[in-house]
Design a protein around this nucleic acid. Structure first.
Lengths: 254, 254
DNA sequence: CTTGACCTTGACGCGACGTCAAACTGTTCA
DNA sequence: TGAACAGTTTGACGTCGCGTCAAGGTCAAG
């Protein structure tokens, strides 16, 4: 048999056969005087077994080892490992399909809809309405939500829901307005302190309890974010943060 | 934010961020005077969304298109296609795991065990016992079995089972012996004809009915195989084949 | 003699990055 | 002041299982 016949017999390409030679999975057969590879029945059997095992999902390197210590213990172990790996893949795919189904169930596919429906609704209600800081806040909440797992998303959404009631919404927009007024203000502006306090009062205690605190808390990202705000706005956020962590520690959560 | 901060915030590597720039998925931000990329909140949100969608299984190219015509119809179509693809993957993995489970259920993992248990048992019983032609036949049956689907495997095993009964086995070994005697014989040897007839008589009619026949039958592989036999042995096989196809046509199967 | 089918080796391409190299910037410590 | 170190820049190569093309050599048929 020449390489084309072998390949056709087993149902692979000639390139595949040569590649298996290259990897040492299939031994190089003898050559005819013209340099062509001459295959025998043994090679076809071996190739068919290689394809069979590869079809199960074994990598070609694992295959080489498995065929080397034929019918060894490692082989069984490798197969069991493979099965466990496939099981994990199944779970992962199932999870992806679940998320996909949730996404497809939504009427629109706007950025917000990438999250849990609850969180999406809350974020839509909190839409900036033309306020620059409102846009910033919306982006911040979107990011926080997207970086949370599903649990965290629904949790966040629940805690934010009080802020979507009509009265709270109006109050929130007023806060955005006052923050926008600080867009060109320097650090030390007299409006900073009162504004931070009003904001702290506007945020539900349970939500405040969720801000990361303690010595191990990583707040560097928050600092990085405030770089795109005015000094006064950044100061407000810093003040707000310290107040919230105080509230949070009283609540007892981390 | 610089690239390292952005990457840490969203949980990817800096290489990933730069790769997304390269693909046009994430717009290049402005540069600081020293040439460093300077990211803003928007970029983090966009990156998080990209990761979210990529985590669903969308390719990065699909992602770029999806994010381009944001909330478009194509996007929904792409997601549905993706879901169908994932469903196919699930089925494929399930099938692989089923085959794996069958394999792992076997006590040994010899080459024969790669097939259906029935076929494996039959092939073990037909083991060559030192006969050169017996080895050849065993390899041939192994190959035929491995190249069949599961249905074909169990079908073959059923049809071969009569040949594993004690009397038939002894008769088969006698045939192997007579074939081995032809290892150095020329074409036209007088022992060829009777041997082919005895072999045809030894093979169950239902099995004979399965040999490919008719004008469209591809027998080139058979010719290739006989190259490793002696001329007389090859002649026996050719004779046997014509007799089997005659029997097969009488049986009515193709 | 040409055509066409097959074979040979060698090389590039995919997708989503990881990893290393060489050069730069910026901060910190001796 | 200088050296170390952590971060950044671009660029290039490696991964895996082959597909595909390139540039030739071999062989049988028309």
């Amino acid at each position: 048999m020449r390489i084309g016949e072998l390949a056709a017999l087993v149902g692979v390409s000639t390139r595949t056969v040569r590649y298996y030679h290259h990897l040492g999975i299939l031994p190089e057969p003898e050559r005819l005087p013209n340099g062509y590879r001459e295959y025998r029945l043994r090679d076809a059997v071996r190739l068919a077994r290689v394809r069979h095992l590869a079809g199960l999902g074994l990598s070609l390197e694992e295959l080489r080892d498995a065929l080397a210590d034929e019918r060894g213990v490692d082989f069984r172990e490798a197969l069991q490992e493979l099965d466990a790996d496939l099981a994990r893949q199944q779970e992962a795919i199932a999870a992806r399909r679940a998320r996909l189904a949730a996404l497809l169930a939504q009427p629109d596919l706007s950025p917000e809809s990438m999250m849990s429906p609850d969180a999406a609704a809350v974020l839509r209600d909190l839409g900036g309405d033309g306020s620059a800081f409102g846009t910033f806040d919306h982006e911040l909440l979107t990011l926080a939500t997207m970086l949370s797992d599903e649990q965290g998303q629904t949790g966040l959404a629940e805690l934010m829901r009080p802020m979507t009631e009509p009265g709270a919404l109006a109050a929130g927009r007023e806060l955005y307005r006052r923050l926008d007024e600080l867009a060109d203000a320097e650090a030390g502006d007299e409006r900073v302190g009162p504004l931070a306090e009003d904001m702290a009062a506007h945020i539900p205690d349970e939500l405040a309890a969720m801000v990361p605190s303690g010595p191990g808390a990583d707040l560097s990202w928050m600092e990085a974010m405030t770089e795109e705000l005015s000094p006064a706005q950044a100061e407000v956020l810093r003040l707000l943060f310290t107040e919230l962590t105080e509230i949070g520690s009283k609540e007892g959560a981390g």
